[in-house]
Simulated assay, not measured.
Amino acid sequence: MNKEELTNETEWWLQQWLELINSYRFKKRLERARNYARQGNVLSIEFQEGKAIARVQGTEAEPYQVSLWLDPLTDEDWGYVIETLSQRAIFSAKLLAGEMPKNIEEVFAANGLRLFPFTLDEVRSRCSCPDKANPCKHIAAVYYLLGDRFSEDPFILLQLRGRTKEQILAALRQQREISTREADTGDRSNAVAQKSPNMARQTRVNLNQFWDYEDALDSSLVVIAPSPSSETVLEVLGPIPLQPSAAGRALMETLNGLYGNIGQQAIVAALNRAG
């Protein structure tokens, strides 16, 4: 599949991967690699920890051994990513349902990280063939087949960055359990304070005014900005079950326009109030 063959129905992660491949300047080498992939020369691809290990049949009797990997994120980086994911309810819900969120790259960007590599130079690779060029046609053939694997299981991208699907889902569930326990603890503390006024006086904390701040805020500290997610409410809820028709499409366009205008008006109203 080349760039011209991409459609709106193509998964976003596959689009990004193929665009990355097509950015390679040696087009003839890419064409040979594409033919290798189409002709079945890539005999197998397995994922071992954070690496893709492949066997590619070349001109020799024995297949060449190819390995591909990305620089993994550190444990600290993954901690930030998991925490941010847990704070974005729609992302957590989709991941726990086994679905890759459309804008998950925003979570990595918010922590100064990136899921996708910027260039092919960031994709580490090695081949046992004698060709000194990198990527050779055997490595590039695996690039194309990886696109198919991403289409089947987009969580492979996360695995190449150092965390399997199971590890991420387990960490998200643990984070949600912690948040639930903290919320329950807060509720119990409020209940105790209401039942025991003397205890509340001893701590000298007025829970009803704990978050109040009576002094005027410096205007430079107040930042009003749109949500970091570009998804509208309609996109989050999914398609409305309408029969495909001109009337149905017109209704969706009208609703999208309304939600867009409402979002803009909310920002303007907030800015006016802040002023």
Rank of each mutant, 00 (worst) to 15 (best):
P244F: 07
R163L: 09
W211N: 15
Q16N: 10
Y259E: 15
P63D: 06
N272D: 15
C127F: 04
A33E: 01
L146M: 14
Y80C: 10
I240W: 11
E231Q: 10
Y213H: 13
L14Q: 07
E106P: 01
Q265H: 08
L217H: 04
L258H: 00
W211R: 14
T180H: 06
S128W: 00
T180P: 07
V223M: 09
A140H: 09
E99S: 11
K3P: 06
N8D: 14
G275A: 14
R249C: 03
N261D: 07
R29S: 10
E106T: 13
I21R: 09
L113W: 09
E105I: 12
T74G: 10
G112C: 13
E166P: 05
P239V: 01
Q174H: 03
A33V: 03
F26T: 04
D187F: 10
N8V: 13
N134Y: 02
N272C: 02
S128R: 05
L172C: 06
Q264H: 14
L242A: 10
T7V: 11
R38I: 03
A61I: 13
E76D: 15
I178M: 02
A225M: 05
A183I: 01
P197F: 10
E46V: 07
G257L: 13
Y24E: 05
N2T: 09
E106Q: 14
R55L: 05
K137W: 01
Q39K: 06
T84F: 08
E105H: 14
L207N: 01
R25V: 02
R55Y: 01
K3D: 02
T84R: 14
G112S: 15
L113E: 09
N2W: 01
N134A: 01
L43Q: 15
T119V: 02
A133V: 00
V192P: 07
Q39P: 04
E231G: 04
T232F: 08
A93S: 09
S23L: 07
Q174K: 07
N134T: 07
T7P: 03
F210R: 15
P241Y: 12
P197E: 12
Q264A: 13
E177W: 03
A266S: 12
E231S: 14
L43V: 10
Y36S: 06
R273N: 11
R173N: 08
R126I: 01
T203P: 07
V205P: 06
